[in-house]
Design a protein around this nucleic acid. Structure first.
Lengths: 205, 205
DNA sequence: TTATTTACCAAACGGTTGTTTGATAAAAAA
DNA sequence: TTTTTTATCAAACAACCGTTTGGTAAATAA
């Protein structure tokens, strides 16, 4: 499991080091969450810096106080989401305290919460498809995310399957969930994801 | 099964009606194929009219002789692909002359050819995700495409499952294939799609 | 206090891109 | 033949968008 930490520009400011944030309309986390929402809803190219700034209550020029470019902002969002999944979803796979079934149930529960709601889909899949042959730097980060996901599921499924089969089934699960999220987004029906997650959970019974 | 025919601007020209095409660098089919390739590779917003025109050996202004806008061109491409799948993929589902297994095998064979190659993915899924909350007109057309796909698979699977189960399995198959195509595009590995198609084919044994 | 840094705004800049316009040369029609 | 239509080009237009710049007021540091 690779944990990716994006070097935020907050880190370089004295106010962050001293933990005494001066008057500020927004926080780093707030910007990342708003950017995540706008990028998810509108896709990368159709989301403008003005859109994201507006969602933060700022003007677009002010965004460059936090991130030097739109691409860097997107990378920060990807890292933010990756980190969130590492802690809130993938970590459950390695939790020795609960049963295999319970680990998968918990992973599915949080995944559902992440993909349904204001995001309306999986930003990793969306941006991955959109920028696949255009911005390879995004693709690399997104591949790392999916690798961690597959690793986590493989680890759980080793309790039920051989090592080789576990990895195959894990890849199928991720692929099936992403396909369902795609259908959910296009049809605007959460049912697709909910059903897919139920099927995935059953594979550990 | 709904067959969508896009009203091309060729239809309105006398030369088409009389079947005497004057000097022309390109044909309508050629433009649609080149546009399909560029849109698939670069996504909708990153593909420029200049890109597509260049792939056709034209200047971007000349594209407007054939289609009044980029959106109309995209709609024509969607209709073109939908029509192609109706004839070359979905039609096999209703072919009473061959066995259930053979129908699915044939559908999978052509699907693989369509998604692997210069297209490197499924334009319906790609554009569907990218423009889901931006251009609803695209979403409607793309939903029709997926509806026809699910209908075709449901029809075949009724030989093996109950009506209700057949539709559920059909939806799973389409969703699983689209997820695999997404992974194939992001990882740049055709293996994901090939494996998914094998699993889908097995459901009819 | 004074000096410096911070968070943000307002406006402008420069490049890109979808679209329009006017012209041209070849083909088709009359 | 003459006239009209067609396919294309070359150039310009207008809007948009990522980015930069210069300034301001508040907070912090000295």
């Amino acid at each position: 499991m690779t944990v990716v930490f994006y070097t935020s520009y907050f880190v370089h400011s004295k106010s962050y080091i001293n933990n005494t944030m001066p008057k500020a309309k927004v926080s780093e986390t707030f910007i990342l969450n708003q950017a995540l929402k706008i990028f998810s809803q509108k896709s990368y190219y159709h989301a403008t810096m003005a859109d994201i700034a507006e969602a933060c209550g700022l003007l677009k020029g002010s965004m460059y106080h936090y991130y030097p470019s739109k691409e860097d902002l997107m990378k920060a969002v990807i890292a933010y989401v990756h980190d969130y999944f590492n802690k809130e979803v993938f970590a459950h796979a390695y939790d020795q305290k609960v049963s295999t079934r319970e680990r998968l149930r918990k992973m599915g529960e949080v995944t559902e919460k992440m993909f349904i709601g204001p995001q309306e889909g999986c930003i990793m899949g969306n941006i991955g498809i959109e920028t696949a042959r255009v911005i390879p730097e995004f693709s690399d980060l997104i591949c790392n995310f999916f690798n961690d996901w597959v690793d986590a599921l493989t680890y759980v499924l080793k309790d039920k399957y051989s090592d080789k089969t576990a990895r195959e089934v894990a890849e199928q699960c991720v692929s099936e969930i992403e396909g369902a999220v795609m259908m959910m987004r296009i049809y605007n029906e959460p049912r697709y994801l909910k059903d897919a997650l139920k099927r995935v959970a059953k594979r550990a019974y």
